[in-house]
Design a protein around this nucleic acid. Structure first.
Length: 274
DNA sequence: AACGCGCCCTGTCCGC
DNA sequence: TGCGGACAGGGCGCGT
């Protein structure tokens, strides 16, 4: 569920409220959200007494940076939420998997209805390895028209699938992949290496635009996404194709189509996207 | 070895 | 009203 804009919205709120606080106690209610080699006991013992220094994002991951370069890396999966208990909406979290009690009386809740999310603990070296597995940050200077063109040329998979691969570009999920392809006039089923240089350049620009616009609207809530205050995002009203099968294209009026690519829906206008 | 598929899990919605 | 099936912002491990 949460893609880059949703993770970024959460990170911005946490960054202004968490640094300086210390973890006093960790309680794990659903151990299946922990990384395979991470036990509840080890998570608790390594975080107990540690101070939060910063909160950052990499791709769709929310990263709590502790003293001594220790990082709690949170992948939200489809329904993961990170909410602090001082938010009025915190009481609505009914699927809390992990609770981090802080020394200031607050707690951080990791809530996850479907429990597809994953919490991992990484030291400096372990984080370096994880970071290297992830692709370009689409909002960074390194994500240039040339860099996207170079990547698309080397792949035969449909461009929608290409955009979802976190090893190439980190942070794009199904909503923003479909929205950016609509804006760029490229059909989701097009093989990546058939995307022209000019189209790759437009796709790069539109991807950055749609991600930034969504961040400005605090992300997209279809049903489950909530920010760090437990509030919904406001970008859903600006979606042009995602989840709009049968509705008229905002440009030409043709009904939007839905197709399934590797078990996931893709949405497009058959006239505007070639 | 890049790519597609099935699966993890809970909740909601739709047709019968 | 109940029941079964399809579907949902993701990602891993497996086969080919």
């Amino acid at each position: 569920m949460p893609e880059l804009p949703e993770a970024e919205t959460i990170v911005r709120a946490l960054r202004s409220r968490l640094p300086g606080a210390r973890v006093e106690r960790v309680s794990v209610r659903h151990a299946d959200v922990l990384a395979p080699d991470l036990t509840p006991r080890r998570l608790a013992s390594r975080l107990r007494g540690r101070r939060i220094e910063d909160v950052t994002r990499r791709g769709k991951n929310v990263v709590l940076v502790f003293e001594d370069e220790l990082r709690l890396v949170i992948n939200l999966g489809m329904t993961g939420r990170v909410v602090t208990t001082d938010a009025p909406r915190a009481a609505e979290m009914r699927h809390v998997a992990v609770r981090f009690e802080l020394d200031d009386g607050r707690a951080i809740l990791y809530d996850d209805i479907r429990r597809f999310g994953c919490l991992d603990l990484r030291d400096a070296e372990g984080w370096h390895r994880r970071d290297a597995e992830l692709g370009l940050e689409p909002l960074s200077d390194a994500f240039t028209p040339e860099s996207l063109w170079a990547l698309t040329r080397g792949s035969t998979t449909p461009i929608r699938n290409f955009l979802l691969d976190q090893r190439r570009i980190a942070g794009v999920g199904n909503i923003y992949a479909n929205e950016a392809l609509f804006r760029a006039g490229i059909r989701p089923t097009r093989r990546s290496h058939r995307v022209t240089r000019r189209e790759a350049s437009a796709l790069r620009d539109h991807l950055r635009d749609v991600l930034q616009e969504s961040i400005d609207n605090r992300g997209t809530t279809i049903s489950d996404y909530r920010d760090a205050f437990g509030e919904s995002g406001g970008f859903v009203q600006w979606l042009r194709v995602y989840d709009r099968a049968g509705e008229p294209c905002v440009v030409c009026g043709t009904p939007i189509r839905r197709v399934v690519l590797t078990n996931r829906s893709a949405f497009y206008c058959p006239v505007c996207q070639r």
